[in-house]
Simulated scan of single mutants.
Amino acid sequence: MTTSLSDVRPIGEQLRAWRQRRRLSQLELASGADVSTRHLSFMETGRSVPSREMVLRLAEHLDVPLRDRNLLLVSAGYAPVYSETSIEEPRMDSVRAALRQVLQGHEPFPAVVVDRFWNLVDANAAAGLFMEGAPEELLRPPLNVLRLSMHPDGMARHIINLGEWRAHMIDRVRRHVALTADESLAQLYRELRDFPGADPVADAVVPPSGNEVVVPLRLRADGRELSFFTTIATFGSPVDITVAELAIESFYPADETTSRYLRERAGW
């Protein structure tokens, strides 16, 4: 649903679309937001214009992304309340410092910071492992880590369990598209899904084997087979759009061979 502030739909249409996207009935949303079903119905049909506080309350209960909450406010006739500050601005010094601390503290294991489109914002030195040998066009800013990992000329050449990993990542993007209704993200999803050489059968999500607790990333490097699992961290209670859309993905060795290789590579 993400669009420009100058091109917004009526507030009632947007509220109804977000409610339906979250698969809530009017009664369920009304009960959760402490508003009458009749009032909610009037807002959705345009018979009543919600107050600024009501827009924010409903957006909170619908888990609407911050940039889309601004759109809801504008469509209801109110000014946006959430800023979108460049990561390079002085007021973001503490944010950048926190990100750097996390990235450096994760060495010698890879870690990256990405935005809502999985474009690379920052990375530690160990993450260079994933970029080695990739063609220049995949490394030009903005470097998209999903495109780099799944492009036939990128990391995909080295990923041993490519079908399993692709299925996991593409499903992750698909679910994010469903949650945000972001058309730009939907375009990225279609691009990744339709990469040359993609095998729809191999990309099918398969049930776990019982021998693993997470979907691993297995790849070849320097004649060795490495295995990783990842964790994702975000900022708590953000009120700036840029901060809300940042995520830190940290890669951990899934076996001793991988751990030893990364330590040796870093000279530890």
Rank of each mutant, 00 (worst) to 15 (best):
2 T>S: 15
4 S>P: 08
7 D>W: 01
8 V>K: 11
9 R>Q: 15
12 G>T: 12
13 E>P: 01
14 Q>V: 02
15 L>N: 09
16 R>H: 02
17 A>P: 00
18 W>C: 00
20 Q>P: 03
21 R>V: 04
22 R>C: 01
22 R>L: 04
22 R>M: 06
25 S>Q: 07
27 L>M: 13
27 L>Q: 14
28 E>G: 02
28 E>P: 01
31 S>R: 15
35 V>K: 02
38 R>F: 01
40 L>M: 05
41 S>Q: 12
42 F>N: 14
45 T>V: 13
46 G>I: 12
46 G>T: 15
47 R>V: 10
51 S>G: 15
55 V>K: 10
55 V>R: 07
55 V>D: 13
63 D>F: 08
63 D>Q: 15
64 V>E: 14
69 R>V: 14
70 N>H: 11
70 N>G: 05
78 Y>G: 10
80 P>D: 05
86 S>E: 07
91 R>A: 12
94 S>L: 07
96 R>Y: 11
98 A>S: 15
98 A>H: 09
99 L>G: 09
100 R>S: 14
108 P>K: 11
116 R>K: 15
127 A>P: 11
130 F>V: 05
133 G>L: 07
134 A>N: 05
134 A>T: 11
138 L>G: 09
142 P>H: 06
146 L>F: 11
148 L>C: 02
148 L>W: 03
149 S>W: 06
154 G>K: 06
155 M>R: 13
157 R>D: 08
157 R>S: 10
164 E>T: 11
165 W>F: 12
172 R>K: 03
173 V>D: 02
174 R>Y: 07
177 V>E: 05
177 V>Q: 01
179 L>Y: 02
186 A>L: 03
186 A>H: 09
187 Q>R: 14
189 Y>V: 02
191 E>H: 06
196 P>K: 04
197 G>N: 08
203 D>M: 13
203 D>F: 03
204 A>I: 09
214 V>T: 13
223 G>M: 06
223 G>H: 05
224 R>S: 12
224 R>Q: 15
226 L>T: 06
226 L>P: 06
227 S>N: 09
228 F>Q: 06
229 F>P: 00
230 T>K: 00
231 T>F: 10
232 I>Q: 02
238 P>Y: 08
241 I>L: 05
247 A>K: 01
247 A>F: 00
248 I>A: 04
249 E>F: 02
250 S>W: 00
258 T>M: 08
263 R>W: 02
265 R>W: 02
266 A>T: 00
266 A>Y: 02
